[in-house]
Protein backbone atom coordinates (compact mmCIF):
# COMPACT_ATOMS: atom_id res chain seq x y z
CA UNK A 1 0.00 0.00 0.00
CA UNK A 2 1.27 3.37 -1.04
CA UNK A 3 1.85 5.88 1.70
CA UNK A 4 -0.57 8.75 1.57
CA UNK A 5 2.18 11.29 1.15
CA UNK A 6 3.74 9.70 -1.90
CA UNK A 7 2.08 11.75 -4.55
CA UNK A 8 4.03 14.05 -6.80
CA UNK A 9 3.59 17.66 -5.90
CA UNK A 10 3.60 20.17 -8.69
CA UNK A 11 2.41 23.16 -6.77
CA UNK A 12 4.89 25.96 -6.15
CA UNK A 13 5.13 27.37 -2.66
CA UNK A 14 7.08 30.54 -2.03
CA UNK A 15 9.85 30.07 0.47
CA UNK A 16 10.05 33.52 2.06
CA UNK A 17 8.63 37.04 2.24
CA UNK A 18 4.97 36.47 2.81
CA UNK A 19 2.08 38.82 3.19
CA UNK A 20 -0.17 37.30 5.84
CA UNK A 21 -3.92 37.35 5.22
CA UNK A 22 -5.94 36.44 8.28
CA UNK A 23 -9.14 34.45 8.55
CA UNK A 24 -12.31 35.79 10.18
CA UNK A 25 -13.22 32.45 11.67
CA UNK A 26 -9.71 31.49 12.74
CA UNK A 27 -9.20 34.82 14.49
CA UNK A 28 -12.56 34.47 16.11
CA UNK A 29 -12.34 30.94 17.41
CA UNK A 30 -8.65 30.00 17.34
CA UNK A 31 -6.67 33.23 17.53
CA UNK A 32 -3.79 31.30 19.08
CA UNK A 33 -3.35 29.26 15.93
CA UNK A 34 -2.58 32.34 13.83
CA UNK A 35 -0.31 33.62 16.55
CA UNK A 36 1.71 30.44 16.71
CA UNK A 37 1.93 30.23 12.93
CA UNK A 38 3.49 33.69 12.74
CA UNK A 39 5.75 32.85 15.62
CA UNK A 40 6.99 29.64 14.04
CA UNK A 41 7.67 31.34 10.74
CA UNK A 42 9.43 34.30 12.23
CA UNK A 43 11.22 32.80 15.17
CA UNK A 44 11.71 29.15 14.41
CA UNK A 45 12.17 29.24 10.64
CA UNK A 46 13.47 32.77 10.33
CA UNK A 47 11.12 33.86 7.58
CA UNK A 48 9.85 37.29 6.74
CA UNK A 49 6.09 37.48 7.07
CA UNK A 50 4.17 40.71 7.32
CA UNK A 51 1.06 40.99 9.45
CA UNK A 52 -0.56 44.13 8.08
CA UNK A 53 -3.15 45.93 10.20
CA UNK A 54 -5.02 47.40 7.25
CA UNK A 55 -6.33 44.22 5.69
CA UNK A 56 -9.97 43.48 6.18
CA UNK A 57 -12.11 40.44 5.75
CA UNK A 58 -12.18 39.33 2.15
CA UNK A 59 -15.97 39.03 2.65
CA UNK A 60 -15.83 35.47 1.31
CA UNK A 61 -18.50 34.25 3.73
CA UNK A 62 -20.76 37.02 2.47
CA UNK A 63 -19.87 36.09 -1.09
CA UNK A 64 -20.66 32.41 -0.65
CA UNK A 65 -23.83 33.17 1.27
CA UNK A 66 -24.74 35.28 -1.75
CA UNK A 67 -25.22 38.71 -0.25
CA UNK A 68 -21.95 40.06 -1.64
CA UNK A 69 -21.95 40.22 -5.44
CA UNK A 70 -19.00 38.84 -7.34
CA UNK A 71 -17.88 42.29 -8.56
CA UNK A 72 -17.65 43.54 -5.00
CA UNK A 73 -15.84 40.41 -3.95
CA UNK A 74 -13.33 40.88 -6.76
CA UNK A 75 -12.74 44.48 -5.66
CA UNK A 76 -12.24 43.35 -2.06
CA UNK A 77 -9.71 40.77 -3.19
CA UNK A 78 -8.07 43.43 -5.32
CA UNK A 79 -7.67 45.56 -2.20
CA UNK A 80 -5.86 42.76 -0.37
CA UNK A 81 -3.52 42.45 -3.35
CA UNK A 82 -3.02 46.22 -3.35
CA UNK A 83 -1.97 46.22 0.31
CA UNK A 84 0.48 43.48 -0.52
CA UNK A 85 1.82 45.36 -3.52
CA UNK A 86 2.22 48.46 -1.40
CA UNK A 87 4.25 46.42 1.07
CA UNK A 88 6.44 45.30 -1.82
CA UNK A 89 5.50 41.67 -1.38
CA UNK A 90 4.48 39.13 -4.00
CA UNK A 91 3.70 36.07 -1.96
CA UNK A 92 0.45 35.72 -0.09
CA UNK A 93 0.12 33.43 2.91
CA UNK A 94 -3.57 32.86 3.43
CA UNK A 95 -4.92 31.65 6.72
CA UNK A 96 -8.46 30.98 5.51
CA UNK A 97 -9.57 28.31 3.09
CA UNK A 98 -12.58 30.29 1.87
CA UNK A 99 -10.33 33.23 1.08
CA UNK A 100 -7.78 30.95 -0.50
CA UNK A 101 -10.38 29.46 -2.84
CA UNK A 102 -11.78 32.92 -3.46
CA UNK A 103 -8.42 34.45 -4.40
CA UNK A 104 -7.78 31.61 -6.80
CA UNK A 105 -11.25 31.89 -8.27
CA UNK A 106 -10.83 35.61 -8.85
CA UNK A 107 -7.40 35.11 -10.43
CA UNK A 108 -8.84 32.44 -12.73
CA UNK A 109 -11.70 34.70 -13.77
CA UNK A 110 -9.27 37.53 -14.50
CA UNK A 111 -7.18 35.23 -16.60
CA UNK A 112 -10.13 34.08 -18.67
CA UNK A 113 -12.05 37.35 -18.69
CA UNK A 114 -9.59 40.27 -18.65
CA UNK A 115 -12.51 42.70 -18.71
CA UNK A 116 -13.41 41.51 -15.22
CA UNK A 117 -9.91 42.36 -14.02
CA UNK A 118 -10.16 45.77 -15.59
CA UNK A 119 -13.48 46.31 -13.86
CA UNK A 120 -12.01 45.30 -10.51
CA UNK A 121 -9.03 47.61 -10.99
CA UNK A 122 -11.35 50.45 -11.86
CA UNK A 123 -13.64 49.82 -8.90
CA UNK A 124 -10.69 49.66 -6.52
CA UNK A 125 -9.11 52.76 -7.97
CA UNK A 126 -12.32 54.76 -7.80
CA UNK A 127 -13.06 53.65 -4.27
CA UNK A 128 -9.63 53.79 -2.68
CA UNK A 129 -7.16 55.11 -5.24
CA UNK A 130 -5.15 51.92 -4.76
CA UNK A 131 -3.48 49.85 -7.48
CA UNK A 132 -2.25 46.32 -7.31
CA UNK A 133 -0.12 43.77 -8.97
CA UNK A 134 -1.20 40.20 -9.27
CA UNK A 135 0.63 38.12 -6.65
CA UNK A 136 3.26 35.75 -7.89
CA UNK A 137 2.38 33.13 -5.39
CA UNK A 138 -0.64 32.44 -3.27
CA UNK A 139 -0.17 29.78 -0.65
CA UNK A 140 -2.40 28.62 2.06
CA UNK A 141 -0.59 28.69 5.38
CA UNK A 142 -0.78 24.90 5.47
CA UNK A 143 1.26 24.87 2.26
CA UNK A 144 3.99 26.75 4.06
CA UNK A 145 3.97 24.39 7.01
CA UNK A 146 3.99 21.55 4.48
CA UNK A 147 7.01 23.05 2.74
CA UNK A 148 8.93 23.34 5.97
CA UNK A 149 7.60 20.20 7.59
CA UNK A 150 10.99 18.55 7.66
CA UNK A 151 12.64 21.66 9.13
CA UNK A 152 9.99 21.65 11.80
CA UNK A 153 10.56 17.95 12.36
CA UNK A 154 14.22 18.70 12.98
CA UNK A 155 13.36 21.36 15.52
CA UNK A 156 10.68 19.21 17.09
CA UNK A 157 10.64 18.45 20.78
CA UNK A 158 7.87 15.92 20.43
CA UNK A 159 7.01 13.31 17.88
CA UNK A 160 3.49 12.26 17.01
CA UNK A 161 3.97 9.02 18.85
CA UNK A 162 1.75 7.43 21.42
CA UNK A 163 4.33 7.04 24.13
CA UNK A 164 2.08 4.65 26.00
CA UNK A 165 2.19 2.10 23.20
CA UNK A 166 5.21 3.26 21.26
CA UNK A 167 3.16 3.35 18.09
CA UNK A 168 2.56 6.38 15.89
CA UNK A 169 -0.52 8.42 16.71
CA UNK A 170 -3.43 7.56 14.42
CA UNK A 171 -4.48 10.80 12.82
CA UNK A 172 -7.37 11.38 10.41
CA UNK A 173 -7.37 14.53 8.37
CA UNK A 174 -10.02 16.76 6.94
CA UNK A 175 -9.12 18.94 3.98
CA UNK A 176 -11.43 21.93 3.63
CA UNK A 177 -13.36 21.71 0.38
CA UNK A 178 -12.22 25.03 -1.02
CA UNK A 179 -8.55 24.17 -0.56
CA UNK A 180 -8.31 21.78 -3.49
CA UNK A 181 -11.75 20.99 -4.87
CA UNK A 182 -12.17 24.22 -6.79
CA UNK A 183 -8.68 24.16 -8.25
CA UNK A 184 -7.16 20.72 -7.70
CA UNK A 185 -3.82 21.85 -9.08
CA UNK A 186 -3.61 24.48 -6.33
CA UNK A 187 -3.71 21.91 -3.55
CA UNK A 188 -0.91 19.56 -2.58
CA UNK A 189 -1.84 16.19 -4.04
CA UNK A 190 -4.93 17.47 -5.81
CA UNK A 191 -8.57 17.07 -4.96
CA UNK A 192 -8.77 13.32 -4.68
CA UNK A 193 -5.77 12.10 -2.72
CA UNK A 194 -4.86 15.30 -1.00
CA UNK A 195 -1.66 14.92 0.93
CA UNK A 196 -0.95 18.28 2.46
CA UNK A 197 -1.94 17.21 5.96
CA UNK A 198 -1.02 13.55 5.73
CA UNK A 199 2.50 14.48 4.66
CA UNK A 200 2.80 16.84 7.64
CA UNK A 201 1.54 14.14 9.98
CA UNK A 202 3.91 11.53 8.60
CA UNK A 203 6.86 13.92 8.65
CA UNK A 204 6.30 14.42 12.35
CA UNK A 205 6.09 10.73 13.13
CA UNK A 206 2.37 10.18 13.11
CA UNK A 207 0.30 7.76 11.08
CA UNK A 208 -2.09 9.25 8.60
CA UNK A 209 -5.26 7.17 8.51
CA UNK A 210 -7.52 7.05 5.49
CA UNK A 211 -11.30 6.68 5.98
CA UNK A 212 -14.13 6.41 3.46
CA UNK A 213 -15.66 9.85 3.92
CA UNK A 214 -12.32 11.62 4.06
CA UNK A 215 -13.23 13.90 1.17
CA UNK A 216 -16.72 14.70 2.39
CA UNK A 217 -17.54 18.28 3.33
CA UNK A 218 -17.72 19.21 7.03
CA UNK A 219 -21.10 20.75 6.31
CA UNK A 220 -20.51 24.47 6.86
CA UNK A 221 -22.64 25.25 3.82
CA UNK A 222 -22.35 28.99 4.61
CA UNK A 223 -26.06 29.87 4.68
CA UNK A 224 -26.80 26.51 6.22
CA UNK A 225 -24.80 27.31 9.32
CA UNK A 226 -25.51 31.01 9.37
CA UNK A 227 -29.28 30.53 9.73
CA UNK A 228 -30.06 28.63 12.87
CA UNK A 229 -32.97 26.63 11.46
CA UNK A 230 -30.78 25.31 8.66
CA UNK A 231 -28.02 23.91 10.82
CA UNK A 232 -29.26 20.33 10.51
CA UNK A 233 -27.46 20.19 7.19
CA UNK A 234 -24.22 21.14 8.83
CA UNK A 235 -24.41 18.65 11.66
CA UNK A 236 -25.60 15.86 9.35
CA UNK A 237 -22.50 16.18 7.23
CA UNK A 238 -20.15 16.23 10.17
CA UNK A 239 -21.96 13.25 11.60
CA UNK A 240 -21.37 11.35 8.42
CA UNK A 241 -17.67 12.02 8.75
CA UNK A 242 -17.54 10.99 12.40
CA UNK A 243 -19.39 7.77 11.65
CA UNK A 244 -16.96 7.04 8.89
CA UNK A 245 -13.84 7.66 10.97
CA UNK A 246 -15.09 6.01 14.15
CA UNK A 247 -14.03 2.43 13.28
CA UNK A 248 -10.45 3.59 12.75
CA UNK A 249 -10.15 4.80 16.38
CA UNK A 250 -8.25 7.99 15.55
CA UNK A 251 -6.28 9.75 18.26
CA UNK A 252 -7.03 13.12 16.75
CA UNK A 253 -8.42 14.96 13.75
CA UNK A 254 -6.17 17.41 11.94
CA UNK A 255 -7.90 20.10 9.95
CA UNK A 256 -6.94 22.53 7.28
CA UNK A 257 -9.74 25.03 7.30
CA UNK A 258 -10.64 27.28 10.23
CA UNK A 259 -14.34 26.59 9.77
CA UNK A 260 -13.90 22.84 9.63
CA UNK A 261 -11.74 22.99 12.73
CA UNK A 262 -14.53 24.74 14.58
CA UNK A 263 -17.32 22.51 13.24
CA UNK A 264 -15.63 19.21 13.84
CA UNK A 265 -14.96 20.38 17.39
CA UNK A 266 -18.40 21.79 18.20
CA UNK A 267 -20.56 19.28 16.34
CA UNK A 268 -19.06 16.44 18.34
CA UNK A 269 -20.37 18.18 21.40
CA UNK A 270 -23.80 18.83 19.85
CA UNK A 271 -24.12 15.24 18.60
CA UNK A 272 -23.25 13.96 22.04
CA UNK A 273 -26.01 16.11 23.47
CA UNK A 274 -28.53 14.93 20.87
CA UNK A 275 -27.66 11.29 20.55
CA UNK A 276 -25.82 10.65 23.78
CA UNK A 277 -22.80 9.24 22.04
CA UNK A 278 -19.29 10.18 21.03
CA UNK A 279 -17.19 8.74 18.27
CA UNK A 280 -14.01 8.44 20.28
CA UNK A 281 -14.71 5.57 22.60
CA UNK A 282 -14.56 7.91 25.58
CA UNK A 283 -16.66 10.77 26.86
CA UNK A 284 -14.36 13.47 25.66
CA UNK A 285 -14.60 13.15 21.89
CA UNK A 286 -11.83 13.15 19.32
CA UNK A 287 -9.51 16.15 19.78
CA UNK A 288 -9.50 18.44 16.75
CA UNK A 289 -6.39 20.45 15.98
CA UNK A 290 -5.39 22.64 13.11
CA UNK A 291 -2.00 22.11 11.49
CA UNK A 292 -0.65 25.27 13.13
CA UNK A 293 -1.72 24.10 16.55
CA UNK A 294 -0.21 20.69 15.90
CA UNK A 295 3.03 22.31 14.71
CA UNK A 296 3.01 24.34 17.91
CA UNK A 297 2.68 21.19 20.00
CA UNK A 298 5.40 19.38 18.11
CA UNK A 299 7.70 22.33 18.65
CA UNK A 300 6.88 22.30 22.33
CA UNK A 301 4.80 25.45 22.70
CA UNK A 302 2.74 25.72 25.83
CA UNK A 303 -0.69 24.48 24.81
CA UNK A 304 -2.37 27.32 26.71
CA UNK A 305 -0.25 29.89 24.90
CA UNK A 306 -1.53 28.66 21.56
CA UNK A 307 -5.16 28.65 22.62
CA UNK A 308 -5.97 24.97 23.02
CA UNK A 309 -8.15 25.79 26.02
CA UNK A 310 -10.59 27.33 23.52
CA UNK A 311 -11.54 23.90 22.15
CA UNK A 312 -14.70 22.27 23.40
CA UNK A 313 -13.20 18.81 23.03
CA UNK A 314 -10.35 18.65 25.50
CA UNK A 315 -6.88 18.12 24.06
CA UNK A 316 -5.45 16.67 27.30
CA UNK A 317 -5.95 13.02 26.27
CA UNK A 318 -3.78 13.69 23.24
CA UNK A 319 -1.18 15.49 25.31
CA UNK A 320 -1.10 12.55 27.69
CA UNK A 321 -0.55 10.09 24.86
CA UNK A 322 2.35 12.23 23.65
CA UNK A 323 3.64 12.52 27.26
CA UNK A 324 3.58 16.22 26.63
CA UNK A 325 5.07 18.31 29.42
CA UNK A 326 2.40 20.83 30.31
CA UNK A 327 0.83 22.36 33.35
CA UNK A 328 -2.85 21.59 33.63
CA UNK A 329 -3.29 24.26 36.28
CA UNK A 330 -2.38 27.01 33.87
CA UNK A 331 -5.28 26.26 31.55
CA UNK A 332 -7.60 28.92 32.87
CA UNK A 333 -5.09 31.52 34.00
CA UNK A 334 -5.10 34.87 32.28
CA UNK A 335 -2.09 36.72 30.86
CA UNK A 336 -1.28 37.94 34.32
CA UNK A 337 -1.49 34.47 35.82
CA UNK A 338 -4.85 35.16 37.44
CA UNK A 339 -7.67 32.61 37.33
CA UNK A 340 -10.25 33.86 34.85
CA UNK A 341 -13.01 31.42 35.59
CA UNK A 342 -13.58 28.24 33.67
CA UNK A 343 -16.23 26.66 31.46
CA UNK A 344 -19.00 24.83 33.27
CA UNK A 345 -18.30 21.82 31.14
CA UNK A 346 -15.68 20.64 28.65
CA UNK A 347 -15.60 17.60 26.39
CA UNK A 348 -18.73 16.01 25.00
CA UNK A 349 -20.46 13.81 27.56
CA UNK A 350 -20.60 14.30 31.32
Amino acid sequence: MMKNSQVTVTKEIADDNYFYLRSCIRQNFFPGAEKVFLDILKNKLGKNIIDNANHISCTGIGYHSDIVPYETYQAMVARQFALMTEQGLKNAAVSCITSYGGYNEVMKTWKEFPEEEAKARKNLKNATGRRFEIPENISHSCDIIYKFRHDIAELAQYKLINKQTGKPLRIVDHIGCHYAKIFPEKGIGGAEQNTVLSAIVEAWGGQSVDYPERRHCCGFGFRHYLVKNNRSYSISNSKKKFESMEPYCPDMIITNCPGCNMFLDKWQYALAKIEGKTYSGDKNGIPVLSYEELAGLVLGYNPWDIGLQMHQVDVEPLLKKMRFDYNPDEKYLDAGGKFMGQPEFTGCLP
Binding site: P212, R215, Y248
Partner: peptide, 12 residues
Protein backbone atom coordinates in the same frame (compact mmCIF):
# COMPACT_ATOMS: atom_id res chain seq x y z
CA UNK B 1 -18.20 9.73 -8.12
CA UNK B 2 -15.66 8.10 -5.88
CA UNK B 3 -14.47 4.93 -4.28
CA UNK B 4 -13.19 4.71 -0.74
CA UNK B 5 -11.84 1.77 1.11
CA UNK B 6 -13.51 0.43 4.21
CA UNK B 7 -11.67 -1.14 7.09
CA UNK B 8 -12.29 -4.65 5.85
CA UNK B 9 -10.73 -3.69 2.49
CA UNK B 10 -14.17 -3.67 0.97
CA UNK B 11 -15.00 -0.68 -1.17
CA UNK B 12 -17.55 2.05 -0.72
Amino acid sequence: SEISERQDKGLQ
